[in-house]
Computed example of a mutant assay.
Amino acid sequence: MNYLAHLHLGGPQPADMLGSLYGDFVKGRLQGDLPRQIEAGIRLHRQIDAFTDSHPLVLQAKARFPAQRRRYAGILLDLFFDHCLAANWQ
Score class of each variant (00 low, 15 high):
Met1Ser: 14
Met1Pro: 13
Met1His: 12
Asn2Phe: 10
Asn2Asp: 13
Tyr3Ser: 11
Leu4Ala: 14
Ala5Cys: 11
Ala5His: 08
Ala5Ser: 15
His6Val: 07
His6Gln: 08
Leu7Met: 08
His8Glu: 10
Gly11Cys: 05
Pro12His: 09
Pro12Met: 04
Gln13Asn: 09
Gln13Thr: 14
Pro14Asn: 13
Met17Leu: 14
Leu18Thr: 07
Gly19Ser: 05
Gly19His: 04
Leu21Asn: 01
Leu21Gly: 00
Leu21Lys: 02
Leu21Pro: 02
Leu21Thr: 05
Tyr22Trp: 10
Tyr22Ile: 02
Gly23Arg: 01
Gly23Gln: 02
Asp24Gln: 06
Asp24Lys: 00
Asp24Trp: 03
Phe25Thr: 10
Phe25Gly: 07
Val26Ile: 14
Lys27Ile: 09
Lys27Pro: 02
Lys27Arg: 15
Gly28Arg: 08
Leu30Asp: 01
Leu30Phe: 00
Gln31Cys: 03
Gln31Gly: 11
Gln31Ser: 11
Gly32Glu: 06
Asp33Gly: 15
Leu34His: 04
Pro35Arg: 10
Pro35Cys: 10
Pro35Asp: 08
Arg36Ile: 11
Gln37Met: 06
Gln37Ser: 14
Gln37Pro: 05
Gln37Ile: 07
Ile38Glu: 04
Glu39Tyr: 02
Glu39Gly: 04
Ala40Phe: 07
Ala40Lys: 10
Arg43Pro: 04
Arg43Gln: 14
Arg43Thr: 13
Arg43Glu: 15
Arg43Asn: 07
Leu44Val: 00
His45Cys: 05
Gln47His: 09
Gln47Thr: 07
Ile48Asn: 04
Asp49Tyr: 06
Ala50Tyr: 04
Thr52Asn: 07
Thr52Tyr: 10
Thr52Asp: 03
Asp53Asn: 11
Asp53Arg: 02
Asp53Gly: 01
Ser54Trp: 06
Ser54Ile: 02
His55Leu: 04
Pro56Trp: 06
Leu57Phe: 03
Leu57His: 05
Leu57Asn: 03
Val58Thr: 10
Leu59Met: 08
Leu59Tyr: 01
Leu59Gln: 10
Leu59Cys: 09
Ala61Asn: 00
Ala61Ile: 00
Lys62Met: 05
Ala63Met: 01
Arg64Tyr: 00
Phe65Ser: 01
Pro66Lys: 11
Pro66Asp: 08
Ala67Phe: 03
Ala67Tyr: 00
Ala67Trp: 04
Ala67Ile: 05
Gln68Thr: 09
Arg69Glu: 12
Arg69Phe: 07
Arg70His: 02
Arg71Trp: 08
Arg71Tyr: 09
Tyr72Trp: 13
Ala73Tyr: 00
Gly74Trp: 00
Gly74Tyr: 01
Leu76Met: 14
Leu76His: 02
Leu77Pro: 01
Asp78His: 03
Asp78Cys: 01
Leu79Thr: 09
Leu79Cys: 12
Leu79Gln: 12
Phe80Asn: 06
Phe81Ala: 15
Phe81Gln: 08
Phe81Tyr: 15
Asp82Arg: 11
Asp82Met: 08
Asp82Ala: 12
Asp82Glu: 12
Asp82Gly: 11
His83Trp: 15
Cys84Lys: 15
Cys84Ala: 12
Leu85Met: 14
Leu85Lys: 05
Leu85Pro: 06
Ala86Gly: 15
Ala86Tyr: 12
Ala87Asn: 07
Ala87Asp: 06
Trp89Met: 12
Trp89Arg: 12
Trp89Leu: 15
Gln90Ser: 11
Gln90Met: 06
Gln90Val: 07
Gln90Glu: 11
